[in-house]
Nucleic acid binder design. Structure first.
Length: 264
DNA sequence: ATGACGGAAGTTTTCCGA
């Protein structure tokens, strides 16, 4: 059983890469971020032919999220779009429950706000959004013992997630305020799946398109899977797949993949 | 200090991302 997340920076552009990647990596559930398309343009047909169902929540130009699941599993249920009680024009969260081998799995796929710069209006929105997400998740966690929150968090856990921590000290994705928010999510009873498996140093999930950043491994780890205790018990591996970043016209993000075994 | 790269909108230039 594998669950993955990937910010694909335009599904219009990246659909062939998503299909190629799924052919090589037939994960059970894949959360996508930055669709950058309206719902009527979502390529449900092409994904179905590749063996995947989808639940999508898009908008024009920006944002947009989806959950893909293999067609041999029952479709997702209890679908929720965005954060209940938090009025938001931006399509950033899609959640669903999947009846999978190993028991019911609640999947919350999210594209966290970028935040632009500390002190900006967008930063304030990011903080409000994070407050709302945490409040809602606290409630979700009481109902769903097997829950994964995954996506593009746009936050580094600490300096180990940053290629040049000195230069990027207290800049966006690296501020104390953002990291405290991320720790507050962990404090709800979640675990950073990648760090359960002692990833190699300089494990990043995003690299700037500029300055040959990928080739130089100048990146950030901002794409995460946070899992509950029950899922931690089942987790057997987690890795960042850098291969798609080597494609022609790649996304700036790499997929992160979690492997789960059967419950004890 | 700035822009660098890439996508979208859409029309020549701007906004946004991270």
């Amino acid at each position: 059983m594998q669950i993955a997340t990937w910010n694909i920076n335009s599904l219009n552009v990246r659909l062939p890469q998503v299909l190629d990647w799924l052919a090589d990596n037939p994960v059970d559930v894949l959360a996508l971020q930055e669709l950058k398309l309206t719902d009527d343009k979502f390529p449900a047909e092409a994904l179905a032919q590749a063996g995947y169902r989808a639940i999508w929540f898009g908008q024009k130009t920006y944002n947009g999220v989806a959950l893909l699941s293999r067609i041999d599993h029952p479709a997702g249920t209890e679908v929720v779009k965005n954060i209940p009680g938090f009025d938001d024009e931006q399509a950033r969260v899609v959640s669903a429950s999947y009846a999978l081998p190993g028991g019911p799995l609640r999947v919350v796929g999210a594209y966290f706000p970028n935040g632009q710069a500390p002190g900006s209006d967008k930063f304030a929105y990011k903080m409000r959004w994070l407050d709302a997400l945490r409040g809602w998740l606290r409630d979700e966690l009481t109902r769903h013992p097997q829950l994964v929150l995954l996506g593009d968090f746009n936050i580094t856990f600490d300096d180990a997630d940053v290629w040049d921590a000195e230069a990027l000290h207290e800049t966006i994705h690296c501020t104390s305020a953002e990291r405290e928010q991320l720790q507050a999510l962990v404090g709800l009873g979640l675990h950073d799946a990648l760090r359960l498996f002692e990833p190699p140093p300089k494990s990043y999930s995003w690299w700037d398109y500029r300055d040959l950043a990928f080739r130089r491994n100048r990146g950030l780890r901002i794409d995460h899977l946070l899992i509950t205790d029950a899922l931690k018990q089942r987790a057997s591996a987690c890795h960042i797949d850098r291969a798609p970043r080597k494609n022609e016209r790649p996304s700036d993000h790499a997929p992160v993949v979690l492997t789960l075994g059967a419950p004890q």
